[in-house]
Simulated scan of single mutants.
Amino acid sequence: MPLPHLSTAVLVQPVSFLGQVLLAGVGLVRGRARISARDLARVSTESSARALPIVTGVNLLVGSILAFVGAVQLVKFGAGIYVADLVGIAVAREMAAVITAVVMCGRTGAAFAAELATMQANEEIDAYEVLGIDPVPYLVLPRVLSLLLLLPLLYIYACLAGLVGGALVGSGMLQLAPQAYMDRTAIILGWSHLGLGLVKSVVFGALIGIVGCYCGLHAQRNAAGVGRATTKAVVVSIVGVIVVDSLFAILANAVGV
């Protein structure tokens, strides 16, 4: 019995769009692509400075939760100082990158999808094409570049917030000296952990930007289409982040990082 065939549009459209983004990036490096500098500046601000409050709050709480859960178990064995090990490794390798990426999926990826879907519904994308302006390098590339470059910086900031949250719980619940906690964190936290988190954040940034823009540009030309595109962007981005993170975990384990 023959297997059912998948719709070609389901596979061809995303791959084609990814190819267009990559070609636009190559064209930008060669000085042949035209992007919107105004969009790049605006989106960079939205994706960095204005995202700091929520990134700070969420990662501070995540670090506190990790420290609290670890302290409950480790204090039974008189190993409370190793809470710093738990929080440092977990935050640097996994939580700072993943939690920040999930926050950006709901905050920035959804905004990209809604904005481009609204432009599609208002036929602004068609107007760009009539004027001879390719919407992929002009509209998509600034958004992808902003997340590609700024999410690693947000990851570093999220690491600091998570470590501070863990230190607050360690000093308050376990009566650990803040200096001892930070010294233990500095000993256990190697460049391999931070490097893995940075690479993850770069990939997550590209994923969120591309998915959000793809969903926006391929939305239906009505109000319901804008809502569906926004929802699809958030869901696909979050699932993609989790899948990519699991692949990174498998690869890191295979190479011994």
Rank of each mutant, 00 (worst) to 15 (best):
L163W: 12
S44W: 04
A177H: 03
L18P: 02
E129D: 12
Q120H: 11
P152G: 07
R184I: 00
T108N: 02
V136M: 10
A167E: 07
G197P: 02
P178M: 12
L163P: 03
T185V: 14
S146N: 13
L60Y: 00
A113M: 03
L28V: 13
L194R: 01
G225Y: 15
A229I: 14
D126E: 12
R143T: 09
R107D: 12
V62Q: 00
S44C: 09
L149Y: 09
V21S: 01
E123V: 11
P152D: 08
D183P: 02
G80P: 00
A114T: 13
A9M: 08
G27R: 09
E46F: 15
V211H: 05
I242L: 15
V12K: 13
A71M: 13
V102K: 11
Y82N: 07
F68R: 05
I208G: 08
P135A: 06
G240P: 06
P142V: 14
Y155S: 08
K76Y: 00
I250L: 14
V58Q: 13
N59E: 02
F77E: 10
C105L: 06
A96Q: 01
G80S: 09
L176F: 06
A167P: 00
L61C: 11
A37N: 06
G195N: 03
L217E: 11
F17G: 03
Y155L: 10
F68V: 06
S48E: 08
A254P: 01
G227E: 09
L52G: 12
L151C: 05
P137V: 13
Q120S: 01
E124K: 08
A96D: 05
H193E: 06
A161F: 03
A161Y: 07
A9N: 09
Y138D: 10
S237G: 02
S47Q: 06
R50Y: 15
R228N: 10
G109D: 14
A224K: 11
A84C: 02
S64H: 10
G165P: 00
R42F: 08
G240W: 12
L139R: 01
I65N: 11
P137Y: 13
I125G: 03
I125W: 01
A37I: 04
R30K: 10
L207D: 09
T100C: 13
L131N: 04
A113L: 03
A33G: 01
L116W: 05
L174P: 01
L145E: 12
V72N: 11
A84N: 01
L150S: 05
V29F: 10
V144T: 07
Q73R: 01
V241Q: 04
C213G: 06
V69L: 04
L174C: 09
R38T: 02
A158W: 01
L23T: 08
Y214H: 06
M104T: 08
G70Y: 01
S64A: 15
Q20Y: 08
S146E: 12
G209N: 10
G78K: 11
G88F: 00
V236M: 14
S246G: 14
A177G: 04
Y138A: 09
S201A: 15
V211N: 07
A121N: 07
V234R: 04
V244L: 12
V15D: 02
F77I: 11
T231K: 00
L61I: 09
P142I: 14
H218S: 13
N222S: 06
L148K: 01
V91C: 03
A110P: 05
A96S: 04
S192N: 13
V26W: 07
D245G: 14
I238S: 05
W191V: 15
P2M: 13
V235W: 10
V75P: 00
L28F: 11
A249S: 07
A117R: 09
